[in-house]
Design a protein around this nucleic acid. Structure first.
Length: 852
DNA sequence: CTCTCCCT
């Protein structure tokens, strides 16, 4: 025991908890202790109100396996972390910073005596970076793990990895605390059995909607429901869950509340004061209707509410790997979320929850929310992994693995920001990327900070990065990023309402600035003061460099179009560096939320690395030949074109391949022999391995390999049709394969009459169409490929009409021939219809010709 | 038809 640390009187604390607080979790403490004594992983399943956050860490403080190492408890939110530390410290008769401390960005209270640290999830990643073995930590508790935040998932995977990599004794213990749904997956992942606790909520009655007007707008349904509930619960305050600000505003416009009822909006964009006003209790004799977004589901609790009205909807961001942008979508909530929302009505006494959907629909909701890792921007995660020496996410164990598409997008972005480079041994972190990983901001912003430093604009870059890494209260009024910079630099006095924002943003900026490498001398050229905001933003968001269209609006380097939501002074600028783009899924065009003018002269200096050059070749109908031009572009925006004198064979071939690929090879002449070759090779591939595929879906991706040599002769577009496709296809087969193809799958088959009948390879199995009389005496079904493929024999009448289709000739002679003979003898009397076809002489002629 | 929540 460290000198000077007061021994903790657990006997005093625990009875206090049990008796005074009556927390259900207290009955399970002995079991939790016993389990952690034996096992290194534990899942604790406990609903809200069980008291786990306060009681569990304190109860484990004196366990011998801790060997004086710390307990780290993770919280998804700053306020919750601070509150948890405060409650625990109070129970010990201390204040935060003694035995119990907390740490979060820009705010911490810890000391050398601190044994329990409550930290936000992002801090754990920084801790791991400082000490990858976590040598002074004995237990990590992930609280509210069911929320499945990106940092929580990543922190768990990295903590498990740290334990495996630096195995020591006693080992690091890991505990997940989660709400009641979905713990089975956690148990399986950590190979342990959950300890389950009761909750402490009052019963809440669930009332489902009738779904009588399914097409009614959500705002109208909510309005009706609020009016009904206000009448039906004359003394109650209401909490209404809506997806977003728009619905809150429209509902408030429609409502005409009775006297004594106050309407209070509540969402994250409101200032702290406005949020507190929404939560504050009413004056005596009055009641309130709080119209809230998801902020009231987890972050803020509203006391004095015993009726909840749940629209069943929420807005969620969805990262689109195609455009590297997140956009908002309105989606149905999960069952877990509906339980959480309902619980808000039962905190102090029994309550009622109105759900605006039917009981049958409840069953169809997803059981739980999708883990954030499945729909998030993964560029930060990818950079962190590389900084930890994890070059492939597959090296870690994941509860939910990062999706491949978004991960690849993240890698592409990091390559574009020069954080990664390709080497013969695969992708590696560059020194620049290493410096980026040290900075606690999105990789785009970290890159911008380093560039700002290199052009002698460290402070401006830090101000911009700070603005862009947090909620931006100015975005409603102004899209021009320069407005923020003027406030933060002190050039323009900041309005009083923005003082809190200004203070926090400057704090953030200072921290970011301190994370940059020590004073490097500006070495990358000197932009002018006017050029700076645009340059910095364009370095962070090169894919959102935008150029005005003649028709108005802008086109982005990523190919999409966007515009300002309302007339804006910025649209005098032909070029913009756009930072944030908004827009709701399903609506056409995106909205520019923040941007700065961009000086195109920078493309010749500091932004030169963003340019790409390409030779574009195309067929020119007028001159009847291929023309080439050299094109300089920023992403999808073309800057300059220069006509070239001649077209190289290589460039022309490449263009022809593109055209062929776009046409899915329909621009080539697929003759009957080509088709037959393809059919035959398909047959052989079914019988044997090692045959190439001539299917379109396999040929199109490999056009460069097999078609390119034949394209050298194609000087005009019309030459494509003359190209010898058959030879090109055949060359995909080895000589031996070509020989065997002819031997195994012959063009013709010799039937008993001596005719050499063409086999029809268009069907599988192939068809042998032959006059019935020519097959007399044939006891076995004809076959090819050394007897491995029985042909489908189409037995034809003398007029060439199919009489019978069979793959079993003996059975035909035995069973069906007699009936065919009876019917046909009258119609074709000149042809032979013998009683015993197997001993008759096969012939292709009539009786008369046969005799002659 | 003016963007959910959260964090280094």
């Amino acid at each position: 025991m460290p000198i000077g640390r007061k021994p903790i009187n657990r006997d005093f604390i625990m009875p206090l908890n049990t008796a005074a607080l009556g927390l259900p979790i207290c009955n399970l403490l002995e079991e939790i202790r016993a389990r952690l004594q034996e096992e290194r992983n534990l899942v604790l399943e406990a609903p809200t109100g069980a008291g786990k956050t306060t009681v569990v860490p304190l109860a484990l403080l004196d366990e011998t396996w801790l060997t004086n190492r710390k307990i780290i408890m993770l919280q998804p939110r700053r306020l919750a972390a601070k509150n948890a530390a405060l409650r625990m410290a109070t129970l010990l008769g201390e204040s935060p910073g003694q035995t119990v401390g907390y740490r979060m960005r820009l705010d911490s209270k810890t000391s050398s005596a601190t044994r329990i640290e409550v930290v936000t999830e992002g801090i754990l990643l920084r801790m791991l970076q400082d000490d990858p073995s976590l040598s002074d930590v004995g237990l990590i508790i992930f609280d509210e793990f069911h929320e499945r935040s990106l940092d929580g998932d990543l922190g768990l995977s990295l903590a498990l990895n740290a334990r495996d990599t630096f195995s020591r004794s006693p080992t690091l213990r890991i505990m997940l605390m989660s709400a009641t749904l979905g713990t089975a997956a956690l148990e399986a992942f950590l190979e342990c059995k959950a300890v389950k606790s009761e909750g402490r909520l009052f019963p809440v009655e669930e009332r489902y909607g009738q779904n009588s007007k399914p097409r009614e707008r959500i705002v109208d349904r909510v309005t009706r429901s609020i009016n009904k509930a206000l009448a039906g619960h004359p003394d109650s305050s209401l909490l209404v869950f809506l997806p977003g600000q728009g619905e809150i505003r429209r509902t408030m416009e429609q409502l005409d509340p009775p006297p004594g009822v106050e309407l209070r909006p509540l969402y994250g964009d409101l200032s702290l004061g406005e949020q507190q006003a929404a939560i504050a209790p009413c004056r005596e004799g009055r009641r309130k209707v709080v119209l809230a977004t998801n902020i009231a589901e987890t972050s803020l609790t509203i006391d004095g509410v015993d009726v909840v009205i749940d629209s069943g909807l929420e807005r969620k961001p969805r990262f689109d790997p195609q455009t590297a942008m997140s956009r908002l979508t309105t989606v149905k909530i999960s069952q877990a979320s509906s339980v959480q929302r309902k619980g808000r009505a039962g905190r102090l006494r029994p309550g009622t929850c109105y759900r605006l959907w039917s009981e049958a629909q409840q069953e169809q909701l997803a059981a739980q929310d999708e883990p954030e890792i499945q729909s998030a921007d993964l560029s930060s995660l990818a950079l962190q992994l590389f900084a930890f020496g994890v070059y492939d996410p597959g090296e870690l164990a994941w509860l939910t693995a990062p999706p491949a598409g978004a991960y690849q997008q993240a890698i592409d972005l990091l390559l574009g920001l020069a954080a990664l480079e390709k080497t013969d041994a695969g992708l590696r972190l560059t020194p620049h990327g290493n410096a980026m990983a040290e900075i606690s901001a999105h990789p785009r912003l970290a890159h911008m900070l380093l560039l700002g430093d290199a052009v002698g604009a460290r402070e401006t870059a830090a101000h911009l990065a700070a603005v862009l890494s947090d909620r931006d209260p100015l975005s409603r009024d102004s899209a021009d990023m320069r407005t923020r910079l003027e406030y933060l630099s002190g050039e323009v006095a900041c309005p009083g309402a923005l003082r809190a924002w200004e203070k926090r943003t400057l704090q953030l900026a200072r921290q970011l600035s301190q994370q940059l490498p020590k004073a490097t001398r500006p070495n990358a050229g000197k932009p002018s003061y006017e050029q700076l905001p645009g340059l910095l933003l364009a370095s962070a968001y090169p894919d959102r460099i935008a150029r005005q269209r003649h028709s108005g609006g802008y086109q982005l380097a990523n190919g999409r179009s966007c515009r300002f939501a309302s007339p804006n002074a910025l649209d005098k600028s032909k070029w913009l560096a756009v930072a944030e783009v908004g827009g709701v899924a399903g609506r056409t065009g995106d909205v520019i939320r923040s941007a700065a003018p961009l000086d195109p002269a920078l493309f010749d200096t500091l932004l030169k690395p963003q340019l790409s050059e390409a030779t574009i070749v195309d067929w020119d109908n007028k001159s009847g030949r291929f023309l080439a031009e050299r094109r300089t572009s920023v992403g999808a925006l073309s800057l300059r074109k220069v006509q070239l004198d001649s077209v190289s064979d290589e460039a022309r071939t490449q263009r022809l391949i593109e055209l062929t690929r776009e046409a899915n090879m329909a621009n080539l002449s697929w003759s009957a022999p080509c088709e037959e070759l393809r059919n035959k090779v398909r047959l052989m591939a079914r019988l044997e391995s090692d045959w190439p595929s001539l299917e379109s879906e396999d040929l199109v991706p490999t056009l460069e390999d097999w078609l390119a040599p034949y394209l050298l002769a194609v000087k005009k577009l019309s030459d494509l049709k003359k190209l010898d496709l058959y030879t090109a296809l055949e060359s995909l087969l080895s000589w031996e394969q070509q020989r065997r193809l002819r031997a195994e799958l012959p063009e013709r088959f010799e039937v008993p009459s001596g005719s050499k009948v063409a086999i029809d390879y268009r069907e599988d199995p192939p068809i042998l169409p032959v006059k019935l009389q020519e097959m007399f005496g044939c006891r076995d079904t004809p076959s090819i490929a050394g007897g491995r493929i029985a042909l489908v024999v189409h037995l034809l009448s003398p007029a060439g009409r199919p009489l019978q289709v069979t793959q079993d000739l003996p059975s035909f002679w035995n069973n069906s021939y007699d009936a065919v003979k009876k019917e046909m003898r009258g119609r074709y009397p000149k042809h032979p219809w013998p009683d015993d076809p197997l001993s008759a002489t096969p012939t292709r002629f009539t009786k008369h010709r046969k005799q002659s």
